[in-house]
Design a protein around this nucleic acid. Structure first.
Lengths: 193, 193
DNA sequence: TCAGTGATGTCTGTGACTGACGTCAGCCAC
DNA sequence: GTGGCTGACGTCAGTCACAGACATCACTGA
C-alpha cells in the first residue's frame, strides 16, 4: 500500500468545490479545505499556486482539445469557421450529465469577483494560444488575433447559455446559434465606421 | 490652507505607477506607496479597495464616455456599428500626448498577471454595461450580448495596437481597422458551422 | 463657542502565501 | 539486506494584503 493516496489534487478540488458551494468562497480558508481531506495548508499550496486555482485544475485538457480542433479543421475553412468548428468539437466536455456540476461551479465563480477574474484570465490565455495556432496555419497576424478574441467571446457566451438554459440543448447547438448571431450582426454592419 | 492637500487618490496613483514601473508591482508594498506621499498604509486602503485598484482610478469616465457614445448613435445604426461608433468617439482619451504614459502603464500591467486579471474584469464589466445599454435601445438579448462582447474585444485589440505602434496612428483609425477586419472575417465565414 | 464632520493615524487581527528544514516510506543499487 | 536517494508531506516562522475599532484634530456652521 502506498504511503499516500494518489489523486491528492483531485480530492482537494472536490472538497474545495463542496465547501465553496456551501459556505462561500471567502468564508472558506485554505486550511479548512486541506484539513477536510486530512492534509495541511502547506500541502494545499504545493498543489495549487493559489487558492483560486483549485477551481481550475484540469482545465488545460479543455484548451488542448480546442487547439486540436483548430489544427484538425479543413485547410480551406475561414478563421472564424475554424474556431467555431473547434468549439463544437468540445461537446464531449459539456455533456448533459455534466451540466449540473458545471452549474454549481459557475454559481460559485459568479458569486465571487476574484474567481471571475481568474476565469477571465484563463479565457484570455486561451485566446492567445488560439491566435498562435491560427497563425501557425497561415492566418495573418491581425486576422488571427481578432478571430481568436472573437472566438473566445463566442465560447464564453455559449457556455453561459448552455449552463443557464434548463431545456435540453446540446453545447454544439448553442455554439452554432451564437456564432450565427455574430455573423448576422456583421452582415448588418458597414465596413467603415 | 486646508488641513490636507486635495487629490490624495491622484497623488497615490502617480506614486504607485512610478514605483511599479521602477521596482515592479510585487516588490512594491502598499505601505511604501503611502509613505512616499507622506501617508499611511491604512489611508491607502481607504482610497482604494485593494492594491491593484490604484492603477484603475478614474477609468469609469472612460466607460461613461463609451456608453454615451452608444446612446448618441443614430437610431438606425446596426449594433456592431453603434459600438464601433462609440469606440471611435473615445479618441480624446487616447491622444498622442497620452500614448507614452499609456505605454508605461500597459508595460506594468502586462508584467503582472494579477493586474492583467483586474484589467480583464474591468473590460468584462464594461461589456455588461454595454449590453445593457444596447438592450435599452431595443436590441435583442442575444444580439446585445454578442455585440457588446465583440465590441470590447475590438476595443482591447485596438488599444493594444494603438499603444504598441510607434508610428503615428490615431485611435479611431486603429478601431476602424480592427472593426473592418472583423467584418471581413465574418464575410468569409459560413452561417452554419 | 461649541458640537459635528471628515480625512487621517494607531493598534490589532486574520488569512493568503512562501522559504527553510525536518520526516519517512518506497525504490534502487550494490 | 543495507544504505542512500527521492518525493510527498509536516512544521515553523515570516511577509504582506487587507479590515475593524477607535482616537485625533483642523475646519465648518449654527
Amino acid at each position: 500500500m502506498a504511503r499516500w493516496e494518489p489523486g491528492t489534487a483531485e480530492r482537494l478540488q472536490a472538497a474545495a468545490l463542496e465547501l465553496f458551494a456551501t459556505r462561500g468562497y471567502e468564508r472558506t480558508t485554505a486550511t479548512e479545505i486541506a484539513q477536510s481531506v486530512g492534509l495541511t495548508e502547506r500541502t494545499f499550496f504545493r498543489h495549487f499556486q493559489d487558492k483560486r486555482e483549485v477551481l481550475f485544475h484540469g482545465q488545460d485538457r479543455l484548451s488542448e482539445a480546442i487547439l486540436d480542433g483548430v489544427r484538425g479543421a479543413p485547410d480551406d475553412a475561414s478563421p472564424l469557421d475554424t474556431v467555431a468548428h473547434a468549439l463544437c468539437a468540445l461537446a464531449p466536455f459539456f455533456s448533459p450529465e455534466r451540466r449540473a456540476s458545471s452549474r454549481t461551479r459557475k454559481a460559485v465563480v459568479d458569486d465571487n469577483p476574484a474567481l471571475q477574474e481568474r476565469e477571465l484570465r484563463k479565457l484570455a490565455d486561451l485566446a492567445v494560444l488560439l491566435a498562435d495556432t491560427l497563425r501557425a496555419r497561415g492566418v495573418g497576424d491581425l486576422a488571427a488575433t481578432v478571430a481568436a478574441q472573437t472566438g473566445t467571446a463566442v465560447f464564453g457566451v455559449a457556455f453561459g447559455r448552455w449552463v443557464r438554459d434548463g431545456e435540453e440543448r446540446g453545447f454544439a447547438e448553442v455554439v452554432t446559434e451564437v456564432h450565427g448571431e455574430l455573423l448576422a450582426l456583421a452582415g448588418r454592419a458597414a465596413p467603415v465606421a
